[in-house]
Design a protein around this nucleic acid. Structure first.
Lengths: 138, 138
DNA sequence: CATAAACTCTATAAAATTTATAGGGATTAT
DNA sequence: ATAATCCCTATAAATTTTATAGAGTTTATG
């Protein structure tokens, strides 16, 4: 399951996607719309900005806005950013690889081999769905 | 990512699958082979037995053994049993459904719609891979 | 029939992670 | 000048995961 952080990030991105005509959107507005803690959401939006998905404007009249095309924001990226690996095991993660302590040899491990396949097929799904698909369903 | 519980379960099932000629296998043997805590693994095997994948024999000379064909043990089942939902959000889980607090209307939620698709495609992958596939890779 | 070997079951403790809060700083419009 | 707003880092609270503990129960065997 996705963490609340990722779930909230998706809600925030969706909200921002739906309000692209506005110059900026307040954290507070998104938080209220979904009943999310302002401060918790603040941290999430900060991460999304640092990762290059959002722009922000400080000071009075400031707020956040989307700086990428919704089409260019695949689910895989958002999940990786906030939740970490998409792979089911560390030993098959492309972006967060770590060996599994209990496994003597990766090349001889049937679990590893199957999980590589699962990872590749899962990635295909998540790279192929973007914020645009979410917006299309609203 | 899978929990250690699920990962250990997969190792245990693999071990049992590789030793089907034996009448029984000791918890201790599996634990040692993979450097897993005996007691932790004990709880996991108990769950697998209660769920109908393993049989056990008590007392001296006892142990665990596989009672299902490896082909009949899909990854999806093992993951659900030990880790819970496969869906990325509670509001699209088939087996562990819960509404999302921050979402006013599921039928109007674009996130929900996309996640239903992701769930269905992910399930296809995980239902289609079984312990047999793991054993084939060993 | 005594003993040791093994699984059974439930409770609890420890560790790690996730979720949430807090508050002072910096910037900007008016 | 002031108020609004994002920026940043630290810490607290809650939850979940991981691990341990120990008293049962069953069974093979000498």
């Amino acid at each position: 399951m996705l963490s609340k952080k990722t779930k909230y990030a998706l809600h925030a991105l969706t909200y921002l996607g739906k309000h692209r005509e506005n110059k900026t959107v307040l954290i507070q507005d998104i938080a209220e719309e979904h009943g999310i803690s302002h401060k918790f959401l603040e941290n999430i939006l900060l991460e999304l900005r640092k990762a290059g998905y959002l722009g922000s404007k400080k000071g009075k009249g400031g707020g956040y806005y989307l700086i990428k095309e919704p089409k260019e924001i695949p689910l895989s990226r958002i999940i990786r950013l906030l939740d970490g690996p998409i792979a089911l095991l560390p030993c098959v993660s492309l972006n967060y690889y770590e060996p599994c302590a209990e496994c003597k040899s990766e090349v001889q491990c049937g679990i590893n081999k199957v999980m590589v396949q699962v990872r590749d097929e899962t990635l295909k799904i998540l790279e192929n769905k973007s914020l645009q698909d979410i917006l299309d369903g609203e």
